[in-house]
């Protein structure tokens, strides 16, 4: 996996809302085909970083490169071309309530391709089939459970076959079985189709199940404090907060003891 080419480079990114700095000087690379997780405690700026990476927020400093092209400075046609490289699943699914699930998935195909109506229908149906939602194709989003809405969100994000998928808190609010099913879908899409995933989450079980590599953000220091494989960070991280996070300990001293036992 380490030999795969870099598809996203985050270089010295600082995120701030006016005077309030959320994260400072964040840098990492995402490689083709890997499941890359951005994790951290509540309020550390994970979702802000994701929204900055997909071009919704403009960073106070730094660059975000897709195959070497900076989305921060890209404008017009160049920006649209960069946006087409990835799909995004938002935390709530963000499906359009006035359309059926199939129409939601079909929408990007209608807007950005010259495929015929029958082909668009076929591709949308195949995407829904990939996430196990074909039976719900004719239903409105309001008639779906939370897990189904998220899977429909993934299907819509994949509609144009982007090489990269961003998922914001895919497991939030889901029961363990549904959450595990979603994790399996992510692994299958990653390994079967070679899609690169950038996932924001703080669900430990999901992180262990899906992540090839991860970075951890910290709300106290307002910067990135760890990068690597989840198991390595759990067993070998020097920062006690990182071990505390991975060992799910409320008390840092207990995490230090647990960490020394496991390593």
């Amino acid at each position: 996996m380490n030999d795969a080419p870099v598809v996203i480079s985050v270089e010295g990114v600082t995120i701030a809302y006016g005077e309030h700095v959320v994260q400072r000087d964040v840098s990492f690379d995402v490689r083709r085909g890997e499941v890359f997780v951005i994790l951290g405690g509540s309020g550390c700026g994970k979702s802000s970083l994701l929204k900055t990476m997909i071009g919704l927020y403009r960073p106070a400093a730094g660059r975000i490169l897709y195959d070497g092209e900076d989305i921060v400075t890209a404008e017009g046609e160049d920006r649209v071309r960069l946006l087409r490289k990835f799909g995004v699943m938002y935390q709530s699914g963000a499906l359009f309530g006035s359309m059926t699930v199939l129409e939601n998935v079909r929408l990007p195909l209608d807007e950005f391709t010259d495929l015929g109506g029958e082909e668009k229908e076929l591709v949308a149906a195949a995407k829904l089939n990939q996430v196990g939602l074909l039976d719900a194709a004719s239903r409105k989003p309001s008639a779906l459970s939370g897990g189904m809405q998220k899977r429909a969100g993934i299907a819509r994000a994949m509609a144009l076959d982007p090489g990269i998928l961003f998922l914001d808190e895919p497991s939030a609010g889901l029961d363990p079985i549904t959450s595990a099913g979603l994790d399996r879908t992510i692994r299958e899409l990653s390994k079967g189709l070679g899609i690169t995933f950038v996932v924001v989450t703080h669900e430990l079980q999901s992180i262990y199940a899906i992540a090839d590599r991860c970075v951890m953000l910290d709300a106290r220091t307002k910067t990135m404090i760890a990068e690597g494989r989840p198991a390595d960070l759990r067993d070998r991280a020097k920062d006690p907060y990182v071990r505390q996070f991975f060992l799910r300990q409320a008390d840092p001293a207990a995490a230090a003891t647990e960490g020394s036992r496991s390593s």
Binding site: L122, A125, A126, L193, G194
Partner: peptide
């Protein structure tokens, strides 16, 4: 094989007909 994976995602004809049938 990688394209076979994509092709296998398309649903069977009867499942597709159920979606395409107008309400």
């Amino acid at each position: 094989p990688e394209f076979q994976t994509l092709l296998s995602a398309f649903p069977a004809s009867d499942a597709l007909a159920a979606i395409e049938a107008p309400a």
